[in-house]
Design a protein around this nucleic acid. Structure first.
Lengths: 250, 250
DNA sequence: TACCAAATGTGTACATTTTACACCATGCAT
DNA sequence: ATGCATGGTGTAAAATGTACACATTTGGTA
């Protein structure tokens, strides 16, 4: 396991001295177009959905793509992602998190483009699409086979990310209305994780975590006994975080 | 919670038609210099260490920075990170994983530079620094106060990442020699997590996961009863993954 | 209005996992 | 031979996770 000694490169100027003109240094770097792509998840009819747009490229005619845009000069990537969300959904107060960069050299037919993927979770009820808008569509995540660019791969990574993340943090509440029944919450978890959960144990677990607030209201217009409605209580969640995610390194 | 209808932007050409010349489209994007920065963790003398290099910028004279380099044209970011590792340590077979992008507009004094942070774990014994090399140094992670650029923030994020990751996957073995005692393994976990662990429970847990291979050798030259040495068995790990990381969405 | 269908709401026993905790064994140094 | 430092081991209690069944409430329907 013997190795050659480490080689130091690219960290000094030609004379071995410190670099003074940092602007010149940065100007010498290769430059790459950067985009953000948002995987916008929603939940409707007991299915996990993702908001897609028809590709604007002739190259990908009739294919769907994630919502993305290039990052402006001097725009932080998080801000770019929020901007895309606002442009597409009109919403500012949504959940958003960076997942990772995708950088295969040929991932974009127009040349080298690196994209940073973001996951966003929002309540579809707050963003009903206009019926005149046939460029945007909520797709059932499980039914998507093929997409423009490497967006199917990005979607798959983000879906796995969501499955894992939702078991560590109660992100699911971002996908539900303010008031929801425990059945809706369980449907959400079952849809995302692709498993069946025991109703009694599910209820026990969520009640024991103590961030569901009973608002004393009931479901309406259901053809069966109506369930109680709850609200997610952020303050109680902050207090009881440890129960949920285990050790907190925050 | 009523919102304006979604606005569609930047996804059609001026006439509302599909875009044919994708090269022209991409050429119109703003371009940004991209770097990778590697947080190279090691373990020595019961401390978690990180390999840093003296900054090459006059602007950051006497500060330390992560090992990084810009991404070449058409180079995938993972490849760039492996390249940096190879250049700095001469090693090719190391553990490497992308953590996330850092993109604050003013994070680099020379202008807009976006960096993608990677974590790498390696065995310091395989990369003893040359005594003539005073540009590179293994720093104790807990003693680092200040760094060039936003590298302290990146280090902090990567350290948290490691703490979480090591509890889900047995990454720790990458930091140890091929043969190690359980005491060394426990020291590693204690150092990274910053906690004290019960020796009996620690042993019980690792043995029950059944990927430690007893190679019938013992520690040498220790001033006390020598401990058994073990090897990490990747095949057994693959089989028993579920025990370790819970549900496997891989 | 009596019944049915469909979903809500609840408790307990068992298995598994996690935690807390103490003593003898071994090898080296003196 | 003794002391010292560390290696190596088991068990009981607590907490958590899992499996499982029946009465209740509502709307719909005959």
């Amino acid at each position: 396991m013997k190795k050659e000694p480490a080689v130091i490169t690219a960290y000094r100027n030609e004379n071995g001295g410190l670099i003074k003109d940092v602007n010149k240094l940065v100007a010498s770097y290769p430059r790459v177009p950067i985009t953000v792509d948002c995987v916008i998840f929603g939940f409707e009819e007991n299915e996990l959905k993702v908001l897609l747009i028809r590709s604007d490229l002739e190259f990908y005619k009739d294919k769907w793509s994630l919502l993305g845009d290039f990052a402006d000069d001097n725009e932080e990537l998080d801000d770019a992602a929020y901007r895309v969300l606002a442009e597409r959904t009109g919403m500012n107060d949504v959940y958003l998190e960076q997942v990772r960069a995708f950088s295969k050299p040929n991932r974009h037919p127009g040349g080298r483009v690196i994209t940073i993927a973001y996951c966003s979770l929002l309540n579809i009820q707050h963003h009903k699409l206009q019926s005149t808008d046939n460029e945007l569509h909520w797709h059932s995540v499980n039914s998507i086979k093929d997409m423009a660019f490497d967006h199917k791969e990005i979607l798959d990574v983000c879906y796995s990310w969501l499955q894992k993340r939702i078991q560590e943090h109660p992100l699911g509440f971002n996908l539900l209305p303010d008031k929801f029944s425990l059945r809706e919450l369980q449907n959400l978890y079952e849809a995302i994780l692709g498993v069946n959960l025991d109703r009694r144990n599910f209820r026990k677990k969520f009640f024991s975590m103590d961030f569901l607030e009973d608002i004393g209201e009931y479901e309406q217009d259901v053809p069966h006994r109506p369930g109680k409605l709850y609200r997610f209580n952020f303050e109680k969640y902050e207090k009881n975080k440890r129960k949920w995610i285990g050790i907190d390194f925050g």
